[in-house]
Design a protein around this nucleic acid. Sequence first.
DNA 1: AAAAGAGACAACCGCGAGTGT
DNA 2: GACACTCGCGGTTGTCTCTTT
Length: 211
Amino acid sequence: MRKPCCEKQDINKGAWSKQEDQKLIDYIRKHGEGSWRTLPQAAGLLRCGKSCRLRWINYLRPDLKRGNFAEDEEDLIIKLHALLGNRWSLIAGRLPGRTDNEVKNYWNSHLRRKLINMGIDPNNHRLNRVLPCSQDSSYSRSVIPSELEKVKGADCEQVSDVGSCLENATRGLPDLNLDLTITNISPINIVEEEKKQSEFDACRETLLLFR
DNA sequence: AAAAGAGACAACCGCGAGTGT
DNA sequence: GACACTCGCGGTTGTCTCTTT
């Protein structure tokens, strides 16, 4: 049936050398991205086209940011993950200079654990245990159900396309912490609510950009 | 100082979607 | 419609580095 993406023999695997990186960079500078299948041979690389593409997209592209994630980037990843699930490329698309692989790795090595430590199930973003109201976490504020209800309601039609990302997000994550409610709204909590609202608005803005 | 374990991240693999023939 | 090809995505694995014992 289908041929493999590349012949398995005479193909380098594993870590890329500086020379290989340079060959790939030089070739793409000269000819542009694309045609990954034929690129390795044309560039004089003993690599699979897939491997070249991955190397370029994840590490060699000039517009990559690299380095540690900022706090606001972390927040955004968590929020988007709550809405979109493991759609890393979509999430990475909202983080300039970040790649899906980078976001995925960061999620698996840092953020997952962070949520678990906060008592939140990273798979469905539900609280595993009751946390005190004052629990520090921008996250616990970020996906409260009232916000999700607002998204599902008023603005759903506006984001019908990409999709449908929001629609899918809410439909695709049926366990999305929908019964987590904030009670006893005191004046202090009202201020908190307003803060939440503005954070939510920012998040929604981001989601609307998917259109 | 050495070994073991844990964490971080680069890279690979398999699959599905989109497109051309 | 069936098939082949390419591309991109997400899950998983391999390996290197750091920390702990």
